[in-house]
Amino acid sequence: MNIIGDIFLVIGALFIAVGGLGLLRMPDVYNRIHAGTKAVTLGSLSVLLGIALLHPTWWPKLLVIAGFLLFTNPVAASIIARAAKISGIKPWRTEEQGGE
């Protein structure tokens, strides 16, 4: 059981690291939101699942945290994207699409 929990911890941390890398590499704010939301959400869920396997008695509270993350992360992402759009940031485009 411990080893499976540890594996989930590592997978989750790996996705979080990939999300951070995406945040750094993507060309504009909308694409950064993609990286910063999807990867980090699944990464956190996987970390929480790993902890639930390491400490089985904690699952109710971990479930609340997981549900909360699953519900609020996309809302936060959408609201930042909306703020970026209203403040006039144009989406980045490839050269073929007529961007820079």
Partner: peptide, 18 residues
């Protein structure tokens, strides 16, 4: 997530946003 990880880890960054 696997799709996103693939895009981020590919050196040429294959995106075409719209």
């Amino acid at each position: 997530n696997f799709e996103l990880a693939m895009r981020v880890l590919t050196p040429s960054l294959p995106i075409r946003p719209e």
